[in-house]
Design a protein around this nucleic acid. Structure first.
Length: 463
RNA sequence: GGUGGGUUGGCCGAGAGGCGAGGCAACGGACUGCAAAUCCGUGUACACGGGUUCAAAUCCCGUACCCACCUCCA
């Protein structure tokens, strides 16, 4: 079986053929750390985390590079507004991002390069482009360096657009540009409005990297001139990815073989944009559902499908996931099967068909529950398969990534001791067929927020 | 104007010519002292109008509405 991926550059779902057998180099555009992460950011991270896990599960050695843009116009502007250093804002938002991603079990990338740490690589690439006649220093003394769109006939190939049809950038500063569509590789330091810490020396004068160039430079450094997969959100297709590809190819680097783009998650039909201010921040979402439930919600939709976020749908997903967890609880054990079922693998191989993959998990859960009812030995085997499938999706409840603090364990044992006392009383009442008394005890426990279920092996409680 | 995507049952959400993915909710049954959980069963779904075909949610033509990108964006 071969993994097939939908390449947005060719608009085809085609076999994944790595440049080197058994290895996969992936570059994903991470975030500009300018504000708290919301569910949209997290969706992208989860989608590509699933890709990475599936490649690993099928035997690939994966180099997963996800950048963090730690300097740009917005970071500078927001920091200035808040009266703090731009790097203080970037660092604080980076910590918030790390926390959010850890809460939904997104594996840390192999390496997470930042723009500010790669100025030499960026300048090297710019110089290469200037030398080849694809970039020029602005003649207005601004210190900017632009990519010359007209010098690269393939410009627009990624998004199938003709340069003539593109709207000229209305808000762009046209100073010194040969064409309004030319974009900045290097931004000259504006000494009147920007702190000195936001400028690095360069042959063009002090300045900082433009937005797109960092990804080309860092992908080149860590994955080489040619690599397998480049990912990001759909909005990045243009201009960001188009520009990345143009820059890289104009510098003689073949760049990415496949382009993957995840769709949006919206609220009230609107894009969850930083500028709209309707962001659903992760900490507040996690007050409602657990991280594993949020992740399940995201994985149950296909990465290329637009999702309309709603708390109702999130709650439903959480219930659906608990059904899986309940089965694993009842089945006991922690064994993980060495291989996932064929239907699951087929679903994943088909452009990461996580909805179908989740359906396979539910099918197994149903079979497992049936097996459990008659007490057959296949139960453990089914549970092990379910865990293997959940592992691929980053949803195995036994994964230590989901482990809660030690305080919880202590609390659990205290509650257990209290509940057990009441359950013993209830058992005595049931023994005496005093149903009214037994139910009263159950209601009393329930009123405290603890559900009691009678199982063949005795009563079980859960919060 | 250019480019790309969408509209599926009460809800979420797959599929991409022929057996009704899966989940949530609902209803009926089994189990249970009663519940819960679980299992079994129950659904005239594919925006609209034409067309192709033995067969269309799926392909073609047209229409409507929605969304994204076109140099801030996951």
């Amino acid at each position: 079986m071969t993994l097939r991926l939908h390449d947005t550059a060719t608009r085809e779902t085609r076999d994944f053929v790595p440049l080197q057998p058994g290895r996969a180099g992936i570059y994903v555009c991470g975030l500009t750390v300018q504000s708290e992460p919301h569910v949209g950011h997290v969706r992208s991270a989860v989608n590509f985390d699933v890709l990475r896990r599936w490649l690993s599960a099928t035997g690939y050695e994966v180099d997963f590079i996800r950048n963090v843009t730690d300097i740009d116009d917005k970071i500078l502007a927001k920091a200035a507004e808040q009266g703090i250093h731009w790097y203080a804002l970037a660092a604080a938002m980076k910590r918030a991002l790390d926390k959010a991603l850890a809460a939904i079990n997104v594996l840390p990338p192999t390496y997470e390069p930042g723009a500010t740490g790669h100025v030499p690589e960026i300048l090297e690439l710019i110089e290469e482009l200037v030398a080849r006649g694809h970039a020029y220093a602005a003649e207005d003394g601004s210190g900017d360096v632009y990519f010359d769109v007209r010098s690269w006939p393939a410009y627009g190939e990624l998004t199938r657009q003709k340069v003539e049809d593109m709207e000229p950038a209305g808000d762009a500063d046209p100073r010194g540009k040969r064409d309004p569509r030319d974009f900045a590789l290097w931004k000259g330091w504006k000494k009147d409005s920007e702190p000195q810490t936001a400028a690095w020396p360069s042959p063009y004068g002090p300045g900082r990297p433009g937005w797109h160039i960092e990804c080309s430079a860092m992908a080149g450094k860590y994955l080489g001139p040619a690599f397998d997969i480049h990912g990001g959100g759909v909005d990045l297709r243009f201009p960001h990815h188009e520009n990345e590809q143009a820059q890289s190819r104009a510098a003689g680097r073949p760049f990415s073989s496949y382009w993957l783009h995840n769709a949006w998650i919206t609220t009230a039909g609107e894009k969850m944009s930083k500028s709209l201010g309707n962001s659903l921040l992760i900490p507040s979402v996690l007050e409602r559902v657990r991280g594993i439930e949020l992740r399940y919600y995201m994985v149950s939709a296909h990465y290329r499908s637009h999702v309309e976020f709603s708390f109702e749908a999130l709650d439903e997903a959480a219930k659906g996931f608990r059904r899986i967890e309940d089965f694993l609880d009842r089945a006991g054990g922690t064994a993980v099967a060495s291989a996932v079922p064929d239907e699951f693998a087929a679903a994943m191989d088909d452009d990461l068909g996580t909805p179908a993959a989740v359906a396979v998990i539910h099918d197994h859960v149903r079979q497992g529950n049936s097996a459990l009812a008659v007490g057959t030995s296949v139960t453990a085997q089914i549970a092990a398969q379910v865990r293997a499938m959940l592992d691929v999706l980053g949803l195995n409840p036994a994964d230590e990534a989901w482990a809660t603090g030690t305080g919880d364990d202590k609390l659990t044992s205290v509650v257990d001791a209290l509940v057990q006392g009441l359950l013993a009383e209830r058992a005595a009442a049931r023994e005496a067929k005093d149903w009214a008394r037994a139910d009263a005890i159950r209601d009393q426990i329930k009123a405290a927020g603890v559900e009691v279920e009678d199982t063949p092996t005795g009563p079980k409680w859960s919060v």
